[in-house]
Amino acid sequence: MKNYWLKWWQTIKVTWVKHTAYRLNFFLQIIGPGLVFFFIKYQLWSSIYRGDQQTIIGGFTLDQMIQYHVWGFLVALIAQANGSWNLSEDIRMGRISSYLIYPFQFHEYHTASFVSFQFIQLFIATFTLALIVLTQLAFLPSLYYLIQGTLFTLFISLFWFLLQYLVGILAFWLEETWIIRVIISIVSYFLSGAIIPLDLYPKWLTHILDYTPFPYLTYYPIQIFMERPVPVFQGYFVITLWMLITIFFINFVWKRGIKMYTAAGM
C-alpha cells in the first residue's frame, strides 16, 4: 500500500516540476484569460449601472456586482484552470502510449497531475486574494465562509477535471475536441452565472438549473464567499451525482476508445 501511494506522490512531484518548468508562460496562461474576462465584465456592468451606486439590479448594487465578479474570477482560478484539455492532443499524437506500458494507470497519472496543479492553483489564488483584499476590490469573508467556499470550489474543480477528461478522451474518435470545449465553456458561462448572476434569471429557469451542475460551478461558490445563504449540501449532492454520471461515461468511452487506439506517430 505504501508503495502505491509513493507512486502517486512521485507523480505529483514530477508533474509539479513539469507545470512550473516554463514559469512565465504558465503564469500568463493561468491568470491571463481570467483577468481579461474579468475586466470585460467590469466594463460591462459599470456601463449598465452607469456608475450609479444607488441602483439595485437583481438585489446587487454596483459594488456588490463587482465583488460578485471578483469572486467569480477567483472561483474560476481554482476550479477551471487545469490543463487536462491537452489530453486530446496526447491521444491524437500517440503520447499516451507510455502510460499503457508503465504499471501506473493513465487515469491515475492524470489525476495526480491534476492534484499537483491544484496545489499550484491554490497558491496563486491565495496570492491573488491577498492583492484583491489589499486593493479593497472585495472584502475577506469570515474564516467559516472562506473555508467552506474553498472546499466547495475544490470539490467543483474535481467535477471540471472529470468533465475535461471525458471530453479529452473523445479524441479517440474526433480529430479535434476544441469545438466541444468551446461549446461547454460558452454554455457554462451563461448557465453558471459567470456573466450574469442567476438572481436575474427567471425563477422557472433557475429551478430547472438546480438539477444541472451549472449553478454550482460559479454561482454557488460565489454566494458562499459573499456570505449569502445557499443550500450547500444540495450542491454537494447534485455534483456528486453528476460526477458519478461523468465517471460512468469516462469508463464507457475509454473501454471503447482504447480498442481503437492506433498509437499513431510512434
Binding site: V14, Y102, P103
Partner: peptide, 15 residues
C-alpha cells in the same frame, strides 16, 4: 522538461 534523474525516480516508484 525535467532532468533524467527525475524520470528515473518516478520509474523507480512505478516499478
Amino acid at each position: 522538461d525535467i532532468p533524467a534523474m527525475d524520470s528515473f525516480l518516478l520509474l523507480q516508484k512505478y516499478y
